[in-house]
Amino acid sequence: MKQRKKGLVIWLLVVVLLFISALLAGSSGHSESVQEAMRDAVLHDTGQISLFGLTTVTPGMVSALVVTVILLIAAALIRIFAVPRFQFQPGKLQLVLEEAVGLFDGMAKGNSPHRNRFMGAYIFAAGAFIFVGTLFELLGLQAITIHDHPITLPAPLSDVNAAIAMGTLSYLVIVSGAVAAHGPKGILKALKEFSLPISMSFRLFGALLSGLLVTELVYYYTSLSFVLPVVVGVLFTLLHALIQTYVLTMLVALYYGEVSEPAHKTPKANQQADNA
């Protein structure tokens, strides 16, 4: 009991000491206004990062690459060490993997019973990218900008370019489904949903950006930086990760199934076929 009290006192002293140190240390001298912080969060024009010396990219691009590397390394490790040991009665890891694959595969098969192999693979990758990419900002990984300033890597999809890329690529996948099912005529069928890439892109961007802006606001003011970030982090990161993953994959599966559905023969066409 006495030892527990002693531990508690030490913990409180450490917290108070760190708080006082933070106050005494002050800022680096360069402080940006809340408007600048918001603008930078949306546009990423001041925090450019060099990509292997080839070109400069936004932090979101670097985040996307890091997320891809993380996912591919994890997938390779699972492929090498876990998949060969799969049992007919699954363990915990196997159950999670099967559940994830089964979820997206089932979504693909349910929405597009005729043609779903590629779409299942695509929405699995897109879902993994959105989910892990959104949670990625919780890691708070740092990068150095071209102006030698440290910057926290954001969620990839908080970069409008990433959101547009995801939305347009999803639309291209949908168009490819239409072409595969109906030939060149399928393009016309898919083109009637011309607003889809824009809506999907900006839905993702808006959802992720709103969370980012609120988080930026919370962290901008020191007085809001206690306890509240935990709630904000849960609300705007975990929930967004789940909801946006579900929304985009479901929409892609739905539209893909719709445009790749085999055409039903009209009675007239049937009659012509009979006459022939």
Partner: peptide
């Protein structure tokens, strides 16, 4: 890259 990699390695 991610789609292809995840397809062959995991999916």
């Amino acid at each position: 890259i991610l789609t292809g990699g995840l397809y062959f390695l995991l999916f």
